[in-house]
């Protein structure tokens, strides 16, 4: 069974046509991989489907806009994967 990171990295590679080997846990989806907000909707859709969750993108965006969080907290892939794991665990609780 592949890890959360592997699943997310494969989704990003396929959705955005980014070479898989350039996608690292420490990659920032926006700043390092150049993924824009529209492409990220495709990624969010694929992640939602793959994990049976609903990424709270609006809440995250609001927190970043309000200065309550940084984009690194949500869009560095290892942090994103931690949050996905949390949402999956919460769903099963």
């Amino acid at each position: 069974m592949s890890s959360t990171f592997d699943t997310v990295a494969n989704i990003i590679a396929e959705t955005c046509d980014i070479p898989r080997d350039t996608i690292k846990p420490e990659s920032h989806a926006i700043e390092d991989l150049g993924i824009d907000s529209l492409d990220f909707l495709d990624i969010a859709f694929a992640i939602d489907k793959a994990f049976g969750i609903k990424l709270p993108l609006e809440q995250w965006t609001q927190e970043v806009n309000d200065g309550k969080a940084t984009t690194e907290q949500y869009f560095v892939l290892q942090n994103l994967c931690t949050r996905i794991d949390g949402l999956v665990a919460a769903k099963g609780a």
Partner: peptide
């Protein structure tokens, strides 16, 4: 197809 957070497909 999908009711996402801030988007729909």
């Amino acid at each position: 197809l999908h009711d996402g957070s801030g988007y729909a497909i």
